[in-house]
Design a protein around this nucleic acid. Structure first.
Length: 952
RNA sequence: GGGCGUAUAGCUCAGUGGUAGAGCACUUCGUUGACAUCGAAGGGGUCGGGAGUUCAACUCUCUCUACGCCCACCA
């Protein structure tokens, strides 16, 4: 095969990917090998590849390819997340565009539609992951709602329930009135919003007054509309202003509701008037105050429906004009907030906020302007309403304890370590996890309730079952009564009650003759993805994969899902597997836009990774991600840099072309070939060192260091020096030298291709197969090739020689530029102070010195009279006679510059060494090194001075 | 209010207790058959300010300033 002149990524990427996948090489059979496991964070089923996925998956692929090449049974589990809210929203939005809505469909039909959508577009991202080159185990692709996951979710729910770790509770939840579902604390984001702070008079009832005679208490609020459900006013127990009225009553002006003034330390005397109105049904603080004041959750007044429109409270005291109003102004229409303020003002209970205008006149405002930290639903985008509902909660506090311990003990290593604090802080302050969602798309909760949910909780008229019992089940034996109850309580058509159910199947006994109806709610998406590290391996079955691949070795995720996903995996994994889900947790940052801002669709600054792949190739994008991934830092997008790595790929391509053209083929051995020539021994040493630092970097999860290591070896060492230095050997008369060089260079190129493969899988696989072999082809593909094992030591002698060679050639080139000598000019050199070892070096390297250094002869004879350039390298001075007119001043300046540099360093070293404190207290090695360096620098300066003297 | 992070060359970023590096950009030179998606040689930084520890600090400690992120019930 002859390599094309130009490297075209698009031409090879799809071909190799298909080949790898169809030949099953993403997970070769290696039952005897040591397992290595990563699970991929399942992307949302409706998602498409964004730049963050490109980072996340590139890092994982680098690790998994590396481990696979090291011979391990490397498994990278892949799958999709059903993404409850997100996916349901997508389908609903599509329906809205067609003028339909979800409720036009039955639940079954709607879910069917979501499945259709999932089938249609759900796989988009998997195709995109393939374009990125990700070597996942597609043969076992999973979905958080496939049969196996469903079974796992069911078991987890039931087991947690039986252990008392899942329970049902009535308390305030974060209610999203747009999506009409409860959401967890994590799904709430606080935004600073401009709002108002209204001050009101709350009149004291029954003729009571404060000690100062005032007949009202001033309260202030940012949410005036909730006063329709106020149930108390709280003051601090020690607040002298109010002590006398504690226990007395307020009569709320609008509702006429009479309620108590209670003492509670929540009220801060320093803030405002020191008195605060209490709405236990619509504020998290007030809920707690209300509980302390003796209100049962069930008695707390609720004034909103699920869409945050005002509804009548249980006591019926909200005036009719408010019923049905939205909580606040929406689409230009005033809501309950505006009306409450207006009425309070009309009634004389609003205390205006007074400011002074520029002319010194006083101006009255209804409210004091304020910035308010307002909770928003991260999906629905509307203000969250704390709402009193029955929901399922996971006792996260109990589950968190061993997960905290696992990190403390080192069973889980978090990389970078700085994230530990964040993890601990969250875990130690964890709140009950609300896992029920009022959605249709997701894992239906396996609970069946009796005639009233309240009764179900109190009287145990509920079933929690791990078998799917259907929508409604009966309890009892009187069929007619059961049918009647079904109709009365649930509006269930009596004919729909399924009497085929076996006695006792529900796990409850009873003669109540009632119907249990299945909980309509579904589970939080993260409830199922928390099981990913073991459920994808077959749990609850005791599979071979499960025993071999759990715990996973590593999890790579963005820090943005540390709480959502990683922490929950830690909790569930330890709870159900009695072991950590993964040994290491690597957290990477965000990929930001070029200006450092967060990418978002609304800002229109998202970068499409597929566009970058089209432009520069997947290998270049991957290498960019790796090279930029330093621990604990976000990555700023930089197209120029991606371009640079495309250039790197081209560079490698051309190096391979050079090899091909010079009869250099694939390596014949895994171990480094034997070599006599210093340049070959040197490059083998460079491979040994590169491999060591590459392995170290990958082991430490330093992707940037790993990428830079292989980059610089390939470009600087191999291309810029080695290939140049061997050109004369390949084309020279010494057949043995040429053969050795061909063998070594073929071996080195192979090592590069292998070491680079995890980063740039496509071009390396292509080159792997392009290099000539004796048998006409490779025995195996690069993806399963063996990671290098040079079995060679670093050859210090060869390193010293080539190092000298490089310095000499570089010095000649630099001198030419400074003295305005055309770079191609052939020079001769006369050596002063050279010894026989140097003479031998020069003999060995004469071809390279001639061809690469343009030094056609080096002699130990004195230089002829006339202008010269002089180079001081190590112990010798190289005197280069200059033909024709030469600018002596330029050469003097050049030498002086070098001299100054030497002297400066010598002076600094001398200063240090003449400080007795340094000599006495510093480490002996440091003193030793300083002495040696000083001697070198002084000798160098002397030679430079001598050279200057010779110039006259 | 807590917690974390970041401030190093024009830009984007590495970095180590012993007087600083990469990529891009910039300057000069270069069409010798791998590569102009290139080569050669360069210029450019008092490593955010201040204090301390140390023989020695860009690197450790404290503090200040600026920016960013996360968590938190301030009515």
């Amino acid at each position: 095969m002859t390599l094309d002149k130009n490297f075209d990524p698009a031409a090879i990427e799809a071909r190799w990917y298909n080949h790898w996948e169809t030949s099953g090489q993403f997970r070769p059979d290696r039952d005897d090998a040591e397992p290595f496991t990563i699970v991929n964070p399942p992307p949302n089923v409706t998602g498409s590849l964004h730049i963050g996925h490109a980072l996340d998956n590139t890092l994982q692929d680098i690790i998994i390819r590396h481990e696979r090449m090291k011979g391990k049974d490397a498994l990278w589990v892949v799958g999709m997340d059903h993404a409850g809210i997100a996916t349901q929203m997508v389908v609903e939005r599509q329906m809205n565009e067609r003028g339909e809505k979800r409720t036009d469909y039955s639940r079954e039909d709607f879910v069917e539609k979501v499945w259709e959508w999932k089938e249609e577009s759900g796989g988009a991202i998997t195709g995109q992951l393939r374009r990125l080159g990700c070597s996942m185990d597609w043969s076992n692709e999973r979905f958080t709602m496939d049969d196996g996951m469903n079974e796992a979710v069911l078991k987890v729910f039931v087991d947690l329930y039986n252990d008392g770790l899942i329970y049902r509770d009535k308390r305030l939840v974060n209610w999203d009135p747009a999506l009409k579902t409860a959401i967890s604390d994590l799904e709430v984001e606080t935004r600073d919003v401009k709002g108002g702070f209204w001050h009101f008079k709350y009149p004291l009832a029954d003729g009571v007054t404060l000690d100062n005679g005032q007949d009202y208490i001033e309260v202030a609020t940012t949410r005036p509309e909730t006063m329709l459900a106020d149930m108390a006013v709280a003051v601090h127990p020690d607040d002298e202003r109010y002590k006398s009225v504690i226990g007395k009553k307020i009569e709320q002006p609008i509702t006429g509701r009479r309620f108590k003034i209670v003492a509670d330390e929540h009220a801060d005397p320093e803030l405002g008037s020191g008195a605060v109105k209490i709405t236990p049904g619509h504020d998290f603080n007030d809920f707690e105050v209300g509980k302390r004041a003796g209100f049962a959750a069930g008695d707390m007044l609720n004034m909103f429906d699920g869409e945050a429109n005002v509804c009548q409270t249980a006591d019926g005291l909200i005036p009719d004009e408010y019923i049905g109003l939205h909580r606040f102004k929406r689409d230009g229409v005033d809501g309950a907030r505006e009306l409450v303020v207006q009425r309070m003002k009309e009634l004389g209970f609003l205390i205006p906020h007074v400011t002074k205008s520029k002319d010194g006149e006083t101006v009255e405002h209804d409210a004091e302007p304020r910035t308010i930290a307002t909770p928003y639903g991260d999906r629905g985008g509307v203000v969250i309403e704390p709402w009193l509902t029955d929901q399922w909660y996971v006792d996260a506090k109990t589950l968190a304890q061993p997960a905290i311990e696992a990190v403390k003990s080192g069973a889980i290593e978090i990389v970078p370590k700085t994230w530990e604090k964040t993890y601990f802080n969250w875990m130690e302050n964890i709140q009950p996890w609300c896992v029920s969602r009022q959605l249709w798309w997701g894992h239906r909760i396996p609970a069946w309730f009796g005639p009233s949910k309240e009764a179900a909780i109190n009287d145990n008229q509920k079933a929690i079952a791990s078998t799917l019992l259907g929508e409604a089940i009966f309890v009892g034996s009187n069929e007619d009564e059961i049918r009647r109850n079904a109709a009365n309580f649930y509006n269930i058509d009596p004919s729909e009650v399924n009497f085929a159910q076996e006695e006792g199947e529900t796990g409850i006994s009873g003669q109540g003759n009632y119907v249990l109806r299945r909980d309509p709610d579904v589970l939080d998406t993260w409830f199922s993805s928390a099981l990913w590290p073991f459920a994808t391996l077959g749990w609850p079955e005791e599979t071979k994969d499960l025993s071999r691949h759990y715990p996973n070795d590593l999890l790579i995720s963005g820090f943005d899902i540390l709480f959502f996903w990683d922490a929950r995996m830690a909790m569930q994994g330890i709870q159900f597997m009695k072991d950590v889900p993964w040994k290491r947790l690597y957290l990477h940052g965000l990929v930001r836009a070029e200006d450092g801002s967060k990418m978002s669709k609304s800002k229109g600054n998202v970068v499409d990774p597929l566009g970058l792949i089209d432009q520069y190739g997947a290998d270049a994008l991957r290498f960019f991600m790796a090279a930029m991934e330093s621990q604990g830092r976000d990555i700023k997008m930089d197209d120029k840099r991606v371009e640079g790595y495309r250039n790197f790929a081209t560079k490698l391509w051309n190096a391979a072309r050079f090899c091909e053209a010079n009869g250099i083929g694939a390596s014949k051995t895994l171990a480094a070939p034997d070599a006599v020539l210093p340049v070959n021994r040197w490059i083998i040493s460079e491979v040994v060192e590169t491999l060591a630092s590459l392995d170290k970097a990958l082991g430490d999860l330093r992707f940037d260091a790993a990428a830079n290591t292989i980059y610089h070896f390939t470009w600087d060492r191999f291309c810029d020096w080695y290939l140049e230095l061997i050109k004369p050997l390949l084309q020279g008369d010494d057949e043995a030298a040429a053969n050795e060089t061909r063998t070594v260079s073929g071996w080195v190129l192979d090592q590069i291709i292998v070491m680079l493969h995890p980063f740039m899988p496509f071009i390396t696989e292509e080159l792997w197969h392009s290099m000539a072999t004796e048998t006409g082809g490779r025995e195996y593909d690069l993806i399963v090739a063996k990671w290098p094992e040079p079995k060679a030591a670093v050859d210090t002698q060869a390193k010293a020689e080539v190092d000298w060679l490089i310095r000499l050639i570089s010095a000649v080139r630099a001198a030419k530029v400074e003295l305005n000598i055309p770079p191609g000019t052939k020079m001769t050199a006369h050596i002063r102070d050279g010894d026989s070892a140097l003479q031998k070096r020069i003999e060995r390297q004469s071809a390279a010195l001639d061809r690469v250094g343009r030094l056609e002869s080096l002699s130990f004879d004195p230089a002829p009279e006339g202008a010269t350039a002089q180079l001081v390298i190590d112990d010798a001075t190289y005197v280069l006679p200059l033909a024709g007119a030469i600018d002596v001043d330029a050469e003097k300046a050049r030498l002086n510059k070098a001299l100054e540099a030497s002297q400066k360093e010598a002076k600094s070293l001398n200063g240090r060494l003449s400080n007795p404190n340094f000599v006495e207290k510093a480490k002996p090695e440091a003193v030793e090194k300083a002495r040696a360096d000083l001697a070198d620098k002084e000798a160098e300066a002397e030679r430079l001075q001598a050279a200057l003297a010779r110039l006259g």
